[in-house]
């Protein structure tokens, strides 16, 4: 990949465009293997699972040193809880990145954009690098940018569903209309879907369930790493547009001079 094509968020230059999760693994010791195989640049960790006193069971003990740690506020049901979790993360030495997750619907785990916006305003003002997880809504995106978000993390499909880019058209509009990096988060179940998100113009993708619950998570992580690179290359190369009809090779107007 050309050196000029580097994603920077919050002033940090990232080594790749693949973000991974840390939940749902059969054992935490798989995490460094997955990170290495994927060439992941960022890993997200649920603050609620962090237990600094847990020794080998402490998930942070398994995060490799060369990756950006992005704590998340999973479990927060409103802005206030998200803000408290973010502050706990910073106090625990997890850096100043925070992925805001506010979910108050246990059936589809859909994010609450309004509460997420409130939390973003507060945390950005406190100096956090805020990456909000949202339903892909253009107005929410604009308000989040104004509130100081460093990137946007819209969902491709509900968390854990592996359904791919169900929200494709909304994602495309968001990528077109905002100049913040758009990282497609949630719903990506296969490397081909990750490649499709990158071809669409995503700045990066975040994958957890599809890697963690694969029969061979390390191999799947490598597959996602390749897919993200391929999709990015295709985006840079400028893919041909899809057409409704066939394009004749002998144009109708070819006789005109």
């Amino acid at each position: 990949m050309p050196d000029t094509d580097t994603l920077s968020i919050g002033g940090t230059r990232l080594a790749s465009r693949l973000f991974v999760g840390s939940g749902k693994y059969a054992r935490n010791s798989l995490i460094p293997e997955v990170v290495a195989a994927a060439g992941a640049a960022v890993i997200t960790v649920a603050v609620r699972r962090v237990d600094l006193e847990a020794g080998a069971e402490n998930i942070l003990a398994h995060i490799p040193p060369n990756i950006v740690l992005m704590p998340n506020t999973s479990g927060a049901r409103n802005a206030q809880e998200a803000v408290r979790l973010a502050r706990l993360a910073r106090a625990a030495g997890c850096g100043n990145w925070i992925k805001i997750e506010v979910i108050d619907d246990n059936r589809y785990l859909m994010p609450d954009n309004a509460e997420t916006l409130k939390a973003t305003e507060l945390l950005a003002a406190e100096g956090f690098v805020v990456l909000p997880y949202i339903s892909p809504d253009l107005y929410a995106a604009r308000r989040l940018k104004a509130a100081g978000a460093a990137a946007l993390m819209p969902l491709g499909a509900p968390i854990g569903t592996n359904r791919g880019l169900q929200t494709k058209e909304l994602l495309r509009i968001m990528m077109e209309e905002t100049d913040l990096p758009v990282i497609v988060d949630a719903g990506i179940g296969r490397p081909s879907q990750a490649a499709a998100a990158m071809e669409l113009g995503a700045a990066a993708v975040l994958v957890n369930t599809a890697i963690a619950t694969a029969d061979d998570p390390v191999r799947m992580a490598a597959a996602f790493g390749l897919a993200v690179q391929a999709g990015r290359q295709a985006w840079l190369a400028g893919p041909g547009r899809c057409r409704e009809t066939a394009a004749a090779s002998s144009p109708l107007t070819g006789f005109l001079r």
Binding site: A26, R27, V50
Partner: peptide, 16 residues
Amino acid sequence: LYQAGRQPVFKDWQTL
């Protein structure tokens, strides 16, 4: 659990 391919989770929430 580890033998069965399942990770035991000792902490999944903390009172805020």
